[in-house]
Amino acid sequence: MSTEEDVRRLCLALPGVTERLSWQRPAWFAATLMARIWDDGVLTVKTGEREALAAMEPDTYFWTPHHERSPLLLLVRLERVNPAELEELLVESHRLSGGTR
């Protein structure tokens, strides 16, 4: 299980990441948006593996019709993802958002 505080800690440990509100919710930015908390413990990240992750674990990974036009965006239920998986997702999202390591 992961929390919003885990997301914050992991995001801010990445180079060049800043935190600010987006849609009145906590969000983290590299060159562009890399992660945003939504209501009910759901996190938005960018990944090149959206289809595979959602197919393997649809109770954890999903997207809504709103996200159809953005094939990199994936929604993650934080209560269902462990901190190691969360870190992998955030590192990839950081890279896809223009961050550097």
Rank of each mutant, 00 (worst) to 15 (best):
Q24Y: 12
L53K: 07
R69C: 03
D6I: 02
R36A: 15
R101I: 00
P58C: 00
C11K: 05
S97V: 06
E51D: 02
E19P: 02
E57V: 01
A31W: 13
E4H: 06
D59G: 15
C11P: 09
S70W: 13
T64C: 12
E19K: 01
L14H: 11
L73C: 05
W23R: 07
G16S: 09
C11V: 07
V42N: 10
W63S: 01
T64R: 14
L78S: 13
L78G: 13
E68A: 03
P71G: 01
V76P: 00
W63G: 00
L53G: 06
E19V: 03
R101P: 09
D39L: 13
H94R: 10
L96K: 03
R95Q: 10
R20N: 06
T64G: 12
E87R: 07
S22F: 08
L86C: 06
W23V: 06
H94W: 15
D39V: 09
V45A: 03
R25D: 05
T3E: 11
E88G: 15
E92I: 09
V7W: 02
R9M: 06
L86A: 07
R77L: 03
E88T: 15
R50L: 01
S22Y: 09
R80W: 03
P65H: 09
L72V: 05
D40G: 09
R50M: 01
G48P: 01
L73P: 01
D6S: 01
G16L: 10
E88I: 14
E5Q: 11
T32R: 08
V42K: 09
V17F: 14
R80Q: 07
G16Q: 12
N82S: 05
T47G: 02
T64Y: 14
M56W: 00
Y61Q: 06
L96V: 10
E68G: 01
W38F: 15
M1Q: 02
H67A: 05
R77V: 08
E19F: 03
W63E: 01
A13P: 10
R69V: 05
L14D: 13
E51A: 04
A13K: 10
R101A: 07
A13Q: 15
E68N: 04
D59T: 11
G99I: 05
L14V: 12
P83I: 11
T100F: 05
L53P: 06
P71N: 04
K46L: 12
S2M: 06
S93L: 10
Y61P: 02
P26I: 12
T47F: 05
L75W: 09
F62P: 00
G41W: 12
S22E: 13
L21W: 12
S2A: 09
W28P: 04
D40L: 11
A27E: 10
R25P: 02
P83H: 10
S2N: 06
W28L: 08
K46G: 08
E87L: 04
H66S: 10
D40S: 13
W28K: 03
R95S: 10
L75G: 08
M56K: 02
T100M: 03
P58I: 00
L21Y: 13
L72T: 06
A13L: 14
E85H: 08
T47A: 05
E57A: 11
I37C: 14
G98R: 10
A52R: 09
L89V: 02
A55I: 00
